[in-house]
Amino acid sequence: MDNIETIIAQFINGLSYGMLLFVITCGLALVFGILGVLNLAHGSLYMMGAYVAYSITVSFGFSFWVALIIAPLTVAVLALIIERTLLHTTYKLGHLSQVLLTFGLAYILHDLAKLVWGANVLSISVPSLFSGSVSILGQTFPLYRLIVIGVGLVLAIGLWWIQNKTRWGAIIRAGLSDSEMIGALGVNIRFVFTVVFVLGGFLAGFGGVIAAPILGLYPDMEFQTLILALVVLVIGGLGSITGTFTAAIIVGVLETFGRYLVPEISMFIIFALMAVILIWRPHGLLGKQVTEG
């Protein structure tokens, strides 16, 4: 680390990466919390979002903004289909079978993406509006990364507001603590399941689109992201937007600095952090209990 400029630049990179992780993880955490299904195809949905955005911008020549709207919606529709055909019909099988089902789905989507988009590394260019850089306090930063940080913040505040101030948020919070009970209270819980799963898919797809110009597209992308999202989930703890947000920022910054300073063991640092958190605070930083005593 030669000077303060690189530190700040890496910090901004880490912050924007953390925001991306937040967008992806909050969808995963919502679905896990309410449906009780750990969606192992969540990373694949993220990948689909990025690839669909690639098709829209590069193959069909539309602008990035069209992709930003269409791609997450496409993924949401895909999530809707998955929920209605596979998950909805298998609630009687139990959660473990459903998790394995999403794992099988990850296989299918992995091969489909390879079939449609090939195994090469692809990339989407940053939209021209944000392609420049800004100078703050005499230092230049890529504008797009700052925008991503802004988007993450807006989304975090929006989700926090929805979860804490609206009727839907109340249902979701209740669902997180006891989904059977709110079914008994007259809420159509199956409908809530569907909406939450589709919302999770939408967030995954949205994350895929905004991440694509930074991280690029390659065949193994879905599990690399899924693993980091799982780590964020464990560190942050279930059931709180704040916890997921804090954990995502920590993991994002740590991963970026790790990659910069000690690339060979960058993943080890993240996992060491997770291990420490699991032993020191079994509930996650801010959340419900995940370990037994």
């Binding site: 750990l38 473990l96 799982l230 993943m267 996992f271 699991l278």
Partner: peptide
């Protein structure tokens, strides 16, 4: 030691995460 601290889905997550860590180590080293 780590995986035994958790149950159910968290066990599944941790084993997956650890194996991906080994994978990324092998891939990068």
């Amino acid at each position: 030691i780590f995986c035994m601290k958790v149950n159910g889905f968290y066990f599944l997550m941790l084993t997956l995460a650890f194996s991906q860590m080994i994978y990324s180590f092998i891939y990068q080293s």
